[in-house]
Amino acid sequence: MNKMNLTLDEDAAAFREEVRAFLDAKLPPAMARAQRLTTTVFSEYELSHPWHEILARKGWAAPDWPVEHGGTGWDATRRYIFASEMERAATPYISPIGLHMVGPVLIKFGTAEQKKQFLPRILEAKDYWCQGFSEPGAGSDLASLKLRAVRQGDDYVLNGSKIWTTHAHVANWMIALVRTSDGPKPQAGISCLLVPMTAAGVQVRPIRTIGGDHEVNEVFFEDTRVPVENLVAAEGQGWAIAKYLLEFERGSVMAAASLRRSLNELLDRALAIDIDDPDIEYSLSRLGIDIDTLEMMELTMLSSLSRGEAPGAESSILKLRVSQLQQQVTEMALQLAGESALRWETHRAFHEICSTPDEDANKPALSRYLNTRANTIFGGSSEIQRTIIAKQLLKL
């Protein structure tokens, strides 16, 4: 029976040290602390944008992109090492919409003009993107979306709305799924447009999450004109683009390092308050085992990617498990905080108001716990992931 070799070879180990040296030199401690106290899924623009610029200057902003478009040329192992070290060091989360979603979509489906216009600006943090998929009546059932795009001459005219649009309030571009036609198969009438958020008729309305943060929004379109050249691929290709984009998004989820950092913080906290509860001790031990198992799943995915295989059902398995473990970590943090977590804090960001280790551990705990309730919904709900897994692996 073959055994998995988890030891880094000399070249990979040297690369890991190079990444660590870069992070030690370029990641300000205050920025890392602010990230540790972030309670939202994405880091705030004011935190992530400067870090994106630092990576861009180094040439490390888009490890997954082809070299000809500004990628690093790293193999799957180096990309995994880089992502893991970033998580270990608590770097800000750069918004994945531009680098990990729009960029790969344009590289595969975009015209030469679209690649020339958008890819360098995404790479250099000159454009900030949001994702216009979900609608009030079309979330997990994305095929029922209704945002209408009617062609009039050289423009599409948009009327309708999107919801749960992360960082639409700071984005200057949206990648949007729109309905360009009707028919017996609703997926066939969906197209993909690149929409400037500065266009006339675009209105962004903030949504305050249950955790008290402003991260998501409603976006309304009223007679908003978008040039035809902003259509990606052809009319009716939006569903194929969406499936590719979401598989790419889920397949890029590598969260074991981040979860292990959070677990270590929980263990430090338990020692600091001298916890003496066998149930909590058991839960922390079980979390450690589950994170080890997740890491093995990620390494299996890494092996597939290194052979040039696209993520399939494995990406849904990872998304499902990561979201569950993220919720469990925040549940444990809330339990350790005890009644201190019940003191609701209205101010954001937390790094601006926390001044002691106790406050760092306790003040964000409730907000983070509440916000992660959505982790099993966004990006495809857990129920959707189980259906994908059943269809692809069990052939149901």
Score class of each variant (00 low, 15 high):
residue 347 H to I: 11
residue 53 E to S: 11
residue 272 A to K: 07
residue 141 D to N: 15
residue 364 P to N: 06
residue 108 K to N: 02
residue 312 G to Y: 04
residue 276 D to F: 03
residue 229 E to F: 11
residue 372 T to K: 05
residue 241 I to N: 12
residue 347 H to L: 10
residue 79 R to G: 12
residue 79 R to Q: 15
residue 262 S to Y: 10
residue 143 A to W: 12
residue 175 I to C: 14
residue 314 E to R: 08
residue 385 Q to L: 00
residue 367 S to H: 11
residue 24 D to K: 13
residue 367 S to I: 01
residue 6 L to S: 15
residue 66 P to R: 13
residue 17 E to P: 06
residue 338 G to V: 04
residue 393 L to F: 04
residue 92 P to H: 07
residue 387 T to P: 02
residue 353 I to W: 09
residue 23 L to G: 07
residue 158 L to R: 06
residue 46 E to T: 05
residue 389 I to K: 04
residue 334 L to M: 05
residue 109 F to I: 04
residue 262 S to H: 13
residue 145 L to N: 05
residue 186 P to R: 08
residue 239 W to T: 13
residue 6 L to A: 11
residue 153 G to T: 09
residue 31 M to Q: 13
residue 353 I to Q: 07
residue 335 Q to S: 10
residue 193 L to W: 06
residue 189 G to P: 03
residue 236 G to S: 10
residue 319 K to C: 12
residue 323 S to W: 01
residue 292 D to Q: 10
residue 165 T to A: 04
residue 283 S to F: 08
residue 37 L to P: 00
residue 190 I to W: 06
residue 290 D to T: 06
residue 324 Q to E: 15
residue 350 F to M: 11
residue 15 F to W: 05
residue 59 G to K: 05
residue 311 P to Q: 04
residue 46 E to N: 11
residue 247 E to V: 01
residue 395 K to T: 08
residue 246 L to F: 07
residue 29 P to W: 05
residue 335 Q to Y: 08
residue 65 W to F: 03
residue 30 A to Y: 07
residue 284 L to K: 03
residue 292 D to P: 01
residue 221 F to G: 01
residue 373 R to A: 15
residue 301 M to N: 06
residue 143 A to I: 03
